[in-house]
């Protein structure tokens, strides 16, 4: 029996880190927009969303490729 523990571990690590990172970014963006504060806050929120959009684009690239 040859279980590839390295790929099990990497799937685990990547899923956890990317999920938490992405959801965190999106949450920061959402909360930033909801607060309706300064222009800085709003642009920071949009920057968060832009990063999330880039992640989605990378996801589509992975699916297609």
């Amino acid at each position: 029996m040859n279980i590839d523990w390295a790929s099990v571990g990497s799937v685990f690590g990547v899923s956890l880190l990317v999920t938490v990172g992405l959801v965190g970014l999106f949450a920061l963006g959402t909360v930033g927009l909801a607060k309706q504060g300064s222009a800085v806050l709003t642009s920071a929120a949009y920057a968060c969303f832009a990063l999330c959009a880039a992640a989605v684009a990378y996801g589509i690239y992975l699916i297609v490729g």
Partner: peptide, 18 residues
């Protein structure tokens, strides 16, 4: 959170060989 975790786990698993 659930849907994002699912999407990422599926993509990560199918591209990291597990």
């Amino acid at each position: 959170a659930a849907q994002t975790s699912a999407a990422i786990s599926i993509l990560a698993s199918s591209h990291l060989g597990f």
